[in-house]
């Protein structure tokens, strides 16, 4: 098979090809350069709100500006913008996101190595907190049923729905099923709002009194960008635990979730939620 077959969906790496595509690459990377410069010049802003702290890091401005300038948001109304930041720019950015994660991965590796002994000590907590994912079921399933959702509730509440969950549910029920619509809802909401949500939560969470190390483990949910936003703002808020330790605990937990996440959904989450659904639906469920 040649790599110039015009099937963008079949190879997620196809957009990174530069041959004959210098224009779109220049527009993409210069847009990112502009966003990075603006975001870094604004710099970190933090202020107390109630019991917690709002921590705004350059990465949060970058994701918000990035979404705003796309063809589908501001570009829809501003013609010159849509010509520069076109749909192809968004297509190129999709695999570039994976490539741009490499420097962060290396940085995390260098943070984890010195903390290795502490991480091994905390091993049991790392493994057991993976079951914390089930907290989504206990909290979100009753709510989903109370809102009048039926089988959608299973897909939407089973897990935080990063790629492995999306795969399991789509595989089992099909993406056009109610369960599929539910999982897609949680997946898309996480994609669009997750970073900002967890970036803000990281600053507020210490106000609950839960220890910063436990909070940093919880930041690892199977999404590198959500974990980074969560742990970076947590680290900026907390002074009792060194920043490097918070970041390394979060990164390790995230790596673990990346490995166990699929099995957690398949072997634990899905059996639990389908049984609980049968019990709860007649009680809490209502006709929408």
């Amino acid at each position: 098979m040649t790599d110039d077959a015009d099937e963008p969906a079949s190879d997620r790496w196809a957009p990174i090809r530069t041959a004959g595509r210098w224009g779109v690459h220049a527009r993409t990377h210069l847009t990112v350069l502009a966003i990075v410069v603006v975001a870094e010049l604004i710099g970190e802003i933090s202020f107390p709100v109630g019991p917690g702290q709002v921590v705004l890091l350059p990465m949060l401005y970058a994701v918000v500006i990035g979404i705003l300038v796309t063809y589908n948001v501001l570009g829809r109304y501003v013609d010159p913008l849509r010509k520069i930041v076109s749909k192809d720019v968004s297509r190129v950015s999709s695999p570039l996101l994976i490539i741009a994660l490499m420097p962060l991965g290396v940085k995390y590796g260098t943070l984890v190595a010195p903390a290795f002994n502490q991480l091994v000590e905390a091993g049991p907590a790392f493994v057991l907190q993976e079951f914390g994912n089930l907290g989504t079921i206990l909290l979100a399933l009753p709510l989903a049923l109370a809102l009048g959702l039926k089988r959608e509730a299973i897909g939407s509440a089973v897990s935080i729905a990063r790629e492995p969950t999306l795969g399991v549910i789509t595989d089992k029920y099909g993406i056009d099923s109610p369960e599929g619509r539910g999982v897609l809802g949680t997946y898309l909401t996480g994609t669009v709002l997750g970073t900002v949500f967890f970036g803000l939560l990281g600053g507020f969470a210490p106000a609950t009194g839960i220890h910063p190390l436990a909070l940093s483990m919880a930041c690892g949910m199977g999404s590198a960008s959500m974990m980074t936003a969560c742990s970076a703002s947590l680290a900026q808020t907390v002074s009792s635990v060194p920043e490097d330790q918070i970041l390394s605990f979060a990164a390790t937990s995230n790596l673990l979730t990346g490995i166990t996440g699929l099995y957690m959904v398949l072997l634990v989450g899905l059996p639990v939620i389908t049984r609980l659904y049968r019990v709860l639906e007649p009680v809490v469920g209502r006709d929408a």
Binding site: P58, L60, A62, S94, L97
Partner: peptide, 16 residues
């Protein structure tokens, strides 16, 4: 983290 999230934001345009 800043370039990552800039690319992430641009690619989210496909999903909005």
């Amino acid at each position: 983290t800043t370039p990552i999230l800039a690319y992430a934001g641009l690619s989210i345009g496909l999903q909005t």
